[in-house]
């Protein structure tokens, strides 16, 4: 695939990253020279995948050699996702820090998370959209940077029996250990689930499954009671819902994530009406969304999402229609000066 010049900008806009990792950092002039070489270096389907089973020592060594050569890059892009009360795994798929994970790890839309790189570096991140029916989710690292990332298998070219490997922070992040690699084969394939014999455990959820060309082919989702049952969401399912996820949508109605309920939102402040209009803030809850956004005692709320606030009922009625995670703009007076604060509703 030859990347066109426009694609990199599109990537920054949150669209599907199409460009080759080696290409994206190159000066355009260099491309002319480098392209033929890159074309030659394009990964080929390893020959052992077309054998029913390895036949001799040479085949085993070929599997080992291929795995050890693609592992370092895959490992660099594999992350731990700390969600406060626990952790899962994920994988970076664009230089800007787009991360794919499982919906049951992200837990919802617009949540604050921490992404931990292999070297232990902790980065701020937030969850984007998710598909709650099949366990897909997208997370964005919000700190600016250029991150190591992996390519996805867009052509859906893996076949039953292909050799694959899984990475993940089994049981949580452990810097001395690093992420854990397991080798296996694709043993079962269905439309929204693929199964491998790479053994998974808690903490691996959301981590990547790779083919032996080092391309991302799935995200760890769940396990069966039998040790050999390890389920992954195929990357195709992510590609199908890519735009919805980049827009921050909550797709479907479970079971892998619970849709926020309207009326369950939480702002964290107490008010009293002001004779001359607006609502005076009498109390701000500690660690509440209101406090985090900068609302202070004594501020006067004027409008929520453009709607005038005259009484406490006005505010309550508006909040009743909203759900945790919803964004809102609060127009208020701070020491008499008008200001607009943006915040997200928390969960009650």
């Amino acid at each position: 695939m030859i990347p066109s010049a426009g694609l990199r900008d599109a990537e920054q806009g949150g669209k599907l990253p199409h460009s080759d990792p080696e290409m994206s950092n190159l000066h355009p002039i260099l491309l002319l020279v480098i392209l033929p070489v890159m074309a030659l270096a394009a990964p080929e389907r390893p020959y052992f995948n077309d054998k029913k089973a390895p036949e001799n020592r040479k085949d085993l060594e070929a599997i080992q050699k291929t795995l050890t050569s693609v592992l370092p890059k895959a490992r660099e892009a594999t992350v731990c996702i700390d969600i406060g009360e626990g952790s899962g795994s994920g994988v970076i798929v664009s230089a800007e820090g787009l991360v794919l994970t499982a919906a049951h790890v992200a837990g919802g839309v617009g949540k604050e998370l921490t992404v931990i790189l292999e070297d232990g570096k902790r980065l701020k991140a937030e969850s984007m959209g998710l598909v709650s029916t099949t366990d897909c989710a997208m997370v964005r690292i919000t700190e600016k940077g250029t991150y190591p990332f992996v390519m996805m298998d867009r052509e859906n070219s893996t076949k039953l029996g292909d050799w694959v490997f899984s990475l993940g922070h089994s049981g949580g992040f452990d810097k001395d250990r690093g992420s854990v690699v397991r080798l296996g084969r694709l043993v079962r394939m269905a439309e929204t689930t693929i199964q491998s014999d790479c053994t998974l455990i808690g903490g691996d959820s959301g981590g990547p499954l790779f083919d032996l060309e080092g391309r991302l082919i799935g995200i760890h989702s769940r396990v069966g009671e039998v040790l050999a049952q390890n389920m992954h969401v195929p990357i195709q399912e992510f590609l199908t819902h890519w735009d919805e996820m980049t827009r921050g949508e909550f797709v479907g109605d479970g079971p892998f994530a619970k849709k926020p309920e309207t009326g369950k939102g939480f702002l964290g402040l107490a008010t009293e009406p002001r004779p001359e209009g607006g609502l005076k803030v009498t109390k701000v809850g500690r660690e509440s969304p209101a406090e985090k956004a900068g609302v202070k005692e004594g501020d006067v709320l004027l409008k929520l999402n453009g709607k005038v606030l005259q009484s406490r009922e006005d505010l309550q009625n508006l909040l009743k229609e909203m759900a945790p995670g919803d964004k809102m703009a609060l127009e208020l007076l701070k020491k008499g000066k008008p200001e607009t604060l943006e915040m997200k509703l928390g969960e009650r």
Partner: peptide, 29 residues
């Protein structure tokens, strides 16, 4: 290291075969 981590969900019943499901025989795993 985190004291707790996110558990992998136990699988739903995936044994009812739907169309297009392929399975690798045990010998080749």
């Amino acid at each position: 290291m985190n004291a707790r981590f996110f558990p992998i969900l136990l699988a739903l019943d995936l044994t009812t075969a739907s169309y297009g499901v392929q399975s690798l025989e045990g010998d080749l795993r």
